[in-house]
Amino acid sequence: MGSRERRVVFVTVGTTCFDALVKAVDSEEVKEALLRKGYTDLLIQMGRGTYMPSKDSGNSTLQVDYFTFSPSIADYIREASLVISHAGSGSIFETLRLGKPLIVVVNEDLMDNHQSELAEELADRKHLFCARPQTLQETVESMDLNNLLPYMPGDANQVVSLINKFLGFPVD
């Protein structure tokens, strides 16, 4: 058992309160689905939430831990085998730039939720999976990481050149 490769699922809600996501990943059903997919550890960044996840993994052998905030989550993302994130653009693009498989969980309690549009568009382009708290188990069970396409950030040089030209700065 000691030689088993760690496969960490990192969950982040950013600086918000998204207890519905934390409760969903803390459910026995989602933990069991993650175990069946071969994950060994679950690390939850819970932000301003008040729901406290259980470190007792119940019937599963999934190792669970959590914390509220960190100055940077980049190292957690780098070490993760899978990231489950709220739909904040910073968390989404940081994860995609690091080439990590990503499930974005949309917070349906937000008014005028532009974040869901971003998540759904990137899911349509096959860069990530999109879920709601109540569909997270189903998404984990059905996800095939081989179907994801790498995200290639756009080249902003043309935009920078246009802005520089408009402002009268030298253009390379």
Rank of each mutant, 00 (worst) to 15 (best):
R132M: 03
L34V: 10
Q158K: 12
K23T: 08
A33D: 10
R78Y: 03
T139I: 12
K37S: 12
L162P: 00
G99C: 11
A33N: 09
S89H: 02
V160N: 08
V83C: 10
P150Q: 04
E28L: 06
A20P: 02
R48S: 13
L128Q: 07
D41K: 03
A74S: 14
F10K: 00
E79P: 02
V104A: 11
G99E: 07
L34T: 14
Y151T: 14
L82V: 10
L43V: 15
T16M: 13
Q115E: 01
G49L: 00
M152T: 10
R36G: 09
G14A: 04
P101D: 04
Q45H: 08
N147W: 14
I73M: 15
P133R: 07
T139Q: 02
G90R: 01
L102Q: 07
V30F: 12
Y76Q: 07
D26G: 00
V8G: 00
V30Y: 05
E138L: 11
A156D: 09
E29G: 10
G49V: 00
A156W: 06
G90M: 01
Y39I: 13
T12Y: 00
V171T: 11
S91A: 14
A87N: 02
V25S: 03
V30K: 03
Q115G: 00
K37Q: 12
D144F: 09
A119W: 08
L145W: 15
T68F: 08
R36M: 10
N147K: 15
N164V: 03
G2K: 09
R4I: 14
D109P: 01
A87K: 01
S142M: 07
K37R: 15
I84P: 11
L96W: 10
E108W: 05
C130W: 11
V25T: 09
P170W: 06
V22P: 06
K100G: 06
A80L: 07
N107K: 06
D109T: 15
A131V: 10
F93N: 01
R97V: 13
S85A: 14
V140R: 04
K165P: 01
R36S: 13
N107H: 10
V8W: 00
N146F: 12
L145E: 14
S60I: 12
Q45S: 07
S116R: 15
Y76H: 11
I44K: 00
V11S: 02
H127T: 02
F67N: 05
T16H: 12
T95W: 07
G14Q: 04
K126M: 14
I84A: 13
V13I: 13
L98H: 08
D65E: 15
L35Y: 09
P101V: 09
L96P: 11
E117V: 14
I84L: 13
T68G: 02
T61C: 08
A87I: 05
Q158M: 12
T50V: 11
S70K: 15
V83N: 07
Y51F: 15
I77N: 05
V106G: 02
L96N: 08
V171M: 00
C130Q: 04
R125W: 09
I103W: 09
N113M: 06
T135N: 06
A123G: 05
S142T: 09
A87H: 03
K37G: 13
P170G: 01
Q45T: 09
L122D: 04
V160C: 13
V9D: 02
V171R: 01
A119M: 05
Q63R: 13
K100P: 11
L98G: 06
S54T: 11
F18V: 06
T40G: 04
L128F: 06
V30Q: 04
N147P: 02
V11P: 00
E28D: 05
